Computed example of a mutant assay.
Amino acid sequence: MDAIVSGQIVTVLLGLTAIGFAVWEIALQRRLRREGIRVKGVVVRHAVSTSGEARSRHAVVSFVDADGVPHEYRSTLSGTRKLPIGRQVPMVYLPGAPTKARIDIGSRRWGEVAIPTLFGMAFTAAGILWMVSSAGVRHH
């Protein structure tokens, strides 16, 4: 298998993996909406992560579950302008699984699904288009 075909397959698989993550997130959020325990949390800090030269900030929310056990949740989405330190935020988690907590704000829930979906669709489409355009070049 040549390097171009390998790259095409990797691109499509990366896209399908991102779409799979989005589907998993949708299923989790549906369960959270039906079965989730809602509590209040407080933004306690902003974690900074770097990827190459790009830096992003993620809100870290502290909350206490129904059993009185404290937990921290680091938002998967970057951006903290609307989540300043000290702000109270609604949280939701599955019974017995507070590690599957999410910030219970509509825009945050939507972003956790939309971003991997768009990323996945873009990579899958790019990989397929790359395959189709390469196949057309080979046949001429």
Rank of each mutant, 00 (worst) to 15 (best):
90 P>D: 04
9 I>L: 10
47 A>L: 12
25 E>N: 09
133 S>P: 00
32 L>H: 14
61 V>T: 04
97 A>Q: 13
100 K>E: 07
56 S>E: 08
19 I>H: 10
67 D>G: 03
132 V>M: 06
103 I>S: 01
128 I>F: 02
33 R>I: 01
88 Q>G: 11
74 R>C: 01
72 E>L: 11
134 S>L: 05
73 Y>H: 15
6 S>Q: 13
9 I>W: 12
81 R>I: 14
85 I>L: 05
17 T>A: 11
36 G>A: 00
106 G>W: 15
113 V>P: 07
24 W>R: 14
59 A>S: 12
29 Q>T: 10
131 M>V: 05
1 M>S: 11
13 L>I: 08
91 M>S: 10
87 R>K: 12
85 I>A: 02
58 H>D: 08
82 K>H: 07
57 R>N: 10
59 A>Y: 00
48 V>Y: 03
66 A>V: 10
128 I>S: 02
133 S>V: 09
68 G>K: 09
26 I>V: 15
2 D>I: 03
43 V>S: 04
120 G>C: 05
127 G>H: 09
42 V>S: 03
103 I>R: 02
106 G>C: 04
77 L>R: 02
87 R>M: 05
100 K>W: 01
16 L>C: 13
131 M>N: 00
32 L>E: 03
36 G>Q: 00
113 V>S: 03
4 I>T: 14
112 E>D: 08
117 T>C: 08
23 V>T: 07
85 I>N: 01
75 S>P: 00
34 R>P: 00
24 W>K: 13
94 L>C: 09
114 A>Y: 04
20 G>E: 05
113 V>C: 09
57 R>I: 02
96 G>A: 11
85 I>M: 07
74 R>I: 06
50 T>I: 05
103 I>W: 01
46 H>V: 08
16 L>H: 09
55 R>V: 05
78 S>G: 13
76 T>P: 00
24 W>S: 14
5 V>Q: 11
27 A>I: 14
12 V>S: 04
36 G>C: 01
61 V>G: 04
1 M>A: 12
54 A>R: 13
138 R>L: 14
14 L>N: 04
64 V>G: 03
119 F>T: 11
42 V>Q: 07
113 V>K: 08
19 I>V: 14
93 Y>P: 08
15 G>N: 00
70 P>M: 11
76 T>Q: 14
23 V>E: 05
17 T>R: 01
17 T>N: 05
14 L>Q: 03
127 G>M: 09
42 V>K: 08
43 V>T: 01
2 D>K: 03
63 F>G: 07
57 R>G: 02
15 G>C: 00
92 V>W: 15
81 R>T: 14
82 K>V: 11
60 V>M: 12
13 L>H: 06
52 G>A: 07
41 G>W: 09
69 V>Q: 07
64 V>T: 15
25 E>V: 13
110 W>P: 00
2 D>H: 07
13 L>Y: 07
31 R>V: 07
78 S>N: 08
124 T>R: 07
53 E>N: 11
61 V>S: 06
37 I>Y: 01
93 Y>L: 04
129 L>W: 06
70 P>I: 10
130 W>S: 15
70 P>N: 10
111 G>L: 11
74 R>N: 01
127 G>P: 08
130 W>A: 15
103 I>E: 01
51 S>T: 13
70 P>S: 13
104 D>L: 05
